[in-house]
Design a protein around this nucleic acid. Sequence first.
DNA 1: CATTGGACTTGGCACTATCCAA
DNA 2: TTGGATAGTGCCAAGTCCAATG
Length: 594
Amino acid sequence: MYWRTYRARSSRVCCTGNENMFAFHFAIYLYFSGTWEEGKSSDTQKWSSLEHKGPYFPPEYEPLPDNICFNYDGQPVKLSPVTEEIATFYAKMLDHEYTSKEVFQNNFFCDWREEMTKEERKLIKTLSKCDFSQIHKYFVEKSEERKNMTKEEKQVLKEEASRLMEEYGYCLLDGHREKIGNFKLEPPGLFRGRGEHPKMGKLKKRIQPEDVTINCSQDSKIPAPPAGHRWKRVQHDNTVTWLASWLENIHGRPKYIMLNPSSKLKGEKDWQKYETARRLKMKVDSIRKQYRRDWTSREMKIRQRGVAIYFIDKLALRAGNEKDDESADTVGCCSLRVEHITLHRRLDAQEHVVEFDFLGKDSIRYYNKVPVEKQVFKNLKLFIKHKDPEDDLFDRITTVKLNKTLNESMPGLTAKVFRTFNASTTLQDQLNKLTTGGMTVEEKILSYNRANRAVAILCNHQRAAPKTFERSMQLLQEKIQKKKEQIEEAKKELKEAKKAHKDAPSDKSKKLLEKKEKAVQRLGEQLKKLQLQETDREENKVIALGTSKLNYLDPRISVAWCKKHQVPIEKIYNKTQRDKFAWAIDMTDENFQF
DNA sequence: CATTGGACTTGGCACTATCCAA
DNA sequence: TTGGATAGTGCCAAGTCCAATG
């Protein structure tokens, strides 16, 4: 079995008794595999055989029934199929707040008109005169119908989906069947984007086979394009991992069809990522010493670099590459502007506080007040001197230069490694601290979630409070209240049973007493469980745990913790996660430390 | 050195499946 | 059996980083 070979290999390399020794050897291995000629080829080659069925195309557009009409300026207009399809994209979104945004409307209308026939373009000149309400209503009803389908109808749909999955969802990589991550091509629609995106509302065009490049091995069965079509290209490049690619028309950037995280290819890459982070653990002291020295350098760019790396290390900020004006205005460390920080000599009884306020990835706000070292504070004052709010804070450095420096400190080190390193270190520390003897499984899980939460807060992984949050919290509180009342009741009954047993002892009264004692105890446990749940949920209101769990936390820490504290792994990882982390579940014993 | 293209990881959220109490 | 809450999944956008180019 494929899995077995993977297993054997991982455990041989990984489960040496001495983790430090292992990290050392791994460092050597990585170092040489990057420089030696022989090593290099094995490093860049991703597979030796690859066969697949090509992407699955979304269904063609189905024109609206004749009784559903688009109206312009009060008059019904029959649109050409292409124009009509784009109209339906807009009509379906009418409930969303963003269709009321000017940027969205302008972009949509502009792109829509471009696809119209000459006659349509001549007629349809103002969006405000367009009436999509019939179309909107039609789709609302359709989705209602879908919701009301019978069990049998739903079953048919389900079987259809699993047939599709069976046919297109897997590939053959080096002779082994692997799950594909996204085998369905993205359907056409209107681009939304996150935050104040200047391109929101633009038309995302339908992908044609003629847009798609196929990547597979030369001697494999080449996937057939849909009837009457050709692929853009068929290539056989084994230095990349993707099966198909195309250019999306909004930014003109490539998109790919790639493997599922459960695949060996992705798993090994993931493992490698965490090993790099563990190597940083070994080197981080000297790196910290270095950047502290840099704070007093004669050269401004070195000072800036030193402070930037300090932020990346201490606050787990992202690198912050340059961005063009064609996307939302968001920043990371290197792209911070003067306006994003406020310096407080003294704030809330703390000295040298930096107040950060900026939009990061996905336009998620980063807000934090952090006391920093005096020298950092001094430097920041220097960096912002004579600058305007919209000027770069670190004007002498870029992510490329910063990463180049990091790479010189440790092969493979980049800014993002600090996030992985900090996240995993935090989880390990928190788990060690929060797990104590004599805890129930539920208490341990609360501890785990709290440790996970500490990481999510560090990485600023936020979410909108769930729409149902207040309500579900209230429900839980009612449940708790009810449980408390039950306990009161049970206690009363227990007291009576005690009295009855004392007054007239018998087998029966003794049994009753025991029963009542058990009931009180059981209810108490249930109450505790509910209260733990309440705490957990309250603390998690605006925190998203998923991203750190999936991308930043070395799964071996969790696996070892589960083994050590007899927590079933299923309580921590669901099925998908267990598949993704199969490598870790398999190779890790309870003594693993990050 | 700056710029661009390309490949890969990381990210939140809407939708869907499942679970559980009434 | 149902409907509402919760958990899980898919979607696809938005980052990082490397290498080629000029």
